[in-house]
Structure formats: structure tokens, C-alpha cells
Design a protein around this nucleic acid. Sequence first.
DNA 1: TCCATATTTCCAATATTATCGAAATTTCAG
DNA 2: CTGAAATTTCGATAATATTGGAAATATGGA
Lengths: 115, 115
Amino acid sequence: MELNQAVQALTALAQAHRLTVYRLLVQAGPAGKVAGEIASALGLPPATLSFHLKTLTHAGLIHPHPEGRHVRYTADFAAMHALIDYLSENCCGDTRAACAPPAPQPPVTTTRSPT
Amino acid sequence: MELNQAVQALTALAQAHRLTVYRLLVQAGPAGKVAGEIASALGLPPATLSFHLKTLTHAGLIHPHPEGRHVRYTADFAAMHALIDYLSENCCGDTRAACAPPAPQPPVTTTRSPT
DNA sequence: TCCATATTTCCAATATTATCGAAATTTCAG
DNA sequence: CTGAAATTTCGATAATATTGGAAATATGGA
């Protein structure tokens, strides 16, 4: 990933309404949400929401999928991971010091730790 | 993590100079860098760099450590992970669909996975 | 065709952010 | 104490972003 691309993505996320929209779409998964659903979830006027959706779209974080007179938006998960990787890239010069996340987050299968 | 805190962190990162500084500190690990080293790495006038360091500090992403007449800055790795988690929180409604990163990135100890 | 619905574009007012010279502050060395 | 070095604060200027009403566009249903 390139600097300017990352800045654009971070700029898109660095705004309360847009960050809320983005997380809503991330949590919605591949099904996404149509613009109207998002608008009523956030209580934003159409013009304002459209502006924010455009910003997120231009940053490559979400994508529009026209469906008749609705437009469904979905999060781009690859873009999300690319951004996250860019932030933590070569963390601590590859020495796994303070870089590892606090808990590796065992999903369902319990990893017994000797505590 | 809370919305406004996340917005503040993302705002701090959403600027080319600051993102560059931040990544420099992330890659420097716990040793960090003193302001002068950062300034010459980026070629920024002192006042400009100071402004950006303050922004990153207020966002809780880095911390200053005064050392005589130098000030060493280090990245806050916990803050970084908290931000990353906030972005991907409850991704796809916990259904591991498109959410998982492309490759689980095996570190050094090979965790044998049945593919 | 005609109307209601969904969304975007246009535009102008308002607010926020970035830049950096110069001066102030703090600290070390001699 | 005196001077040089590292960093921050101040302040003015320029650039960029956010907001939302009104109008435009596109679609589907009767």
C-alpha cells in the first residue's frame, strides 16, 4: 500500500459520521446496506449522507451496488486489511516485542494457557 | 474504545507527515526516536514537526519521554491495536465470512493448519 | 404516461486544519 | 555564568472539509 492511498483511507475514516457508517457496513458483512437504511440509522439528511458515502467510496473502503432505485453499499474487507497492515507494517523492526496484540483472541477452540 | 477517541486517532493518522512519523515510530519499536531524528528523517521545520507530534500525542498514539534537552517519542502499541480492533469489531456480525485477513501470516513457530 | 420514492449534484456558508518564521523555554557544556 | 543546541509556543496566513437546502436524475408502479 502507498502513503497517499493510506492517507485517503484514514481521512475518510477520520470523521464521526463516516466512521459510524463504515462500521455499520463492516458489521453488516457482504450483505451491506442500502443508502436509505444508513440514512435512517444515522439520522442524516440525504445530501450529507451522500457526501460521506462518496468520500468513503473514493477512498476504496466501500463500494456501491446499484439495485433499481436503491444503492446498496458494502465494505471492502481487503481494503480494510490492507490499511491495518500498512499501519503495523514492519512493527518493531520485525522483532516481536511490544507489537503483538495483547491476546491472540482464541475463536472457539480453547487454547489452554498455563497462566 | 469510544467513537470520538477513534476519530481523534484516525484524524491524527490522516495526514501524510503524521502517518510517516507514526510508522517510523512503530517500526522503531520501544526504543523510539528523538524529535531531532524524526525532523531530519522527514525534512520538516521544527515548528511543523512539533505541531504534528503534539497531534499524535493528544490522540494517545505516541508518548513523549523527555531526556535532557531531547524528547524521545515512542508509539503506543496498545492504542494501535485498540484502534485496529475498533475498525474490524464485530465484523460480518461475527460470521467469519469475508472478514478474515487473506493469509493468517504464520510467524516463526509453524502452527500446522489442516488447510 | 404520471407520480412517488431513492439518491446524487450543486452551491454557498461555516468551520477546521496545516504551515512555518520568530520568539520563548529548557538543558547541557565549558 | 554564558553560549549553543533541542524543542515548543505564538500568531498570521493559506488551504481544505463539512453541512444541508434546493434542484436534478433515475427508477419502478399504477
